[in-house]
Design a protein around this nucleic acid. Structure first.
Lengths: 122, 122, 122, 122
DNA sequence: GTGGTCTAGACCACC
DNA sequence: GTGGTCTAGACCACA
């Protein structure tokens, strides 16, 4: 369910964070349900446990998950759409960039429509 | 004309590259006209010459500029839309991300319109 | 295994690149196997780490190796004949030069035979 | 008659030297006949006079030309085939390189024949 | 003056 | 430990 690209320039722990958040948003991980343990997650992904721990720690600081010592890590309710906001921020930054390069509004909208396909209902 | 944020996470040399490309695209630097020398650019930006040289060398590898040793660095091609394409790629990536998070087409378009202002003519 | 001539006019980092490519072609470094770290290679050769890093980075841009930040540098493809092609190009250039100077075909062939020795089997 | 590529990585003064030697070898410049003055040569090629002077100076050191102060520069008899020897040296170096990469004698000879064309008489 | 190479040494993020 | 970035300062070849 989670794909890590070890060769990518994006740090593994960040890839992990993003994908976990996405899975939570998509409802794959329910609220108050447990996440895989650091060790099993690390083993499954072929990644150093420290890396997984780092991702979990950051997610906890962002109140996306919470830890019950001695039991495990659980999904928290807060910030469920954090990744959406993050993507929106990136989106606005890139948009500003595009505008400053002289791209027109129509061109951007066309690209949006391209991606969303010809259908009007999502 | 060029602004460097030394505190940014983005490497200085990359900031430089982007801004130079943008300036070339905007026509500030014409074809075959010289760029500031490594040393003067470094001095002007308050940056080490090596850092400027690194940016210049990468731009040369991308065939955006060419250097004549002992004389200086010159704009090679006005590949008007290199940076635009780069931004477009980023844009599509972010857009895909947004879509996969459940953002609707209308929300995206609204953001676009927000940024471009209420006027319809650009 | 690698010999650097610090007194040569040819830059150290270029010497390094060539010899690494050759070693890869000869199978000394296998695909996906790690190269010596920047620091260890530098130490071994009595060269500054920056110089080794420069060679590695260029090889990466040529897609000969790939680097995983925080882990190391790895052989990417056994493009067996990259260096061979490079040498061939040089060869043809020199050959053209020789021809334009009036050297005869027989003289060239004689030199070839001289170098390859009197035996006919390689 | 002389072509200088200012963008080339090869120093201009070296390009000059080579081409002058070649012209001498081909008989375009006769023994004891005068070469163009530094200034006129520089002007004709659109090159800095210092650069031409440097080339002339080196050629004089190699006894290819000689200077008569107040009169000009003249072709000397010595070393008329210096460039041929130089090319031969390069040739042998490249040849050695090729051999060490596993190239066979037949392949090399084929390349030679390719370049000299199908005819057998030069 | 120009760019190119190299060194020494620093700090950072990542694993 | 790894590579990545940056600085400061040196020397060189070239124009």
């Amino acid at each position: 369910m989670i794909n890590i690209d070890t060769r990518s320039r994006e740090p593994i722990y960040l890839q992990l964070e993003k994908q976990i958040i996405k899975l939570i948003n998509l409802g794959v991980y329910d609220i108050d349900s447990p996440l895989p343990s650091v060790r099993s997650m690390a083993c499954e992904l072929g990644v150093n446990p420290n890396t997984v721990a780092k991702a979990y720690k950051e997610l906890e600081q962002q109140q996306v998950i919470y830890t019950v010592v001695g039991k495990g890590v659980y999904v928290s309710v807060n910030n469920t759409d954090r990744i959406k906001k993050l993507a929106e921020e990136q989106f606005k930054a890139v948009l500003t960039e595009l505008k400053s390069c002289g791209l027109k509004r129509e061109e951007v909208i066309e690209m949006v429509n391209d991606l969303w396909g010809g259908d009007n209902n999502d």
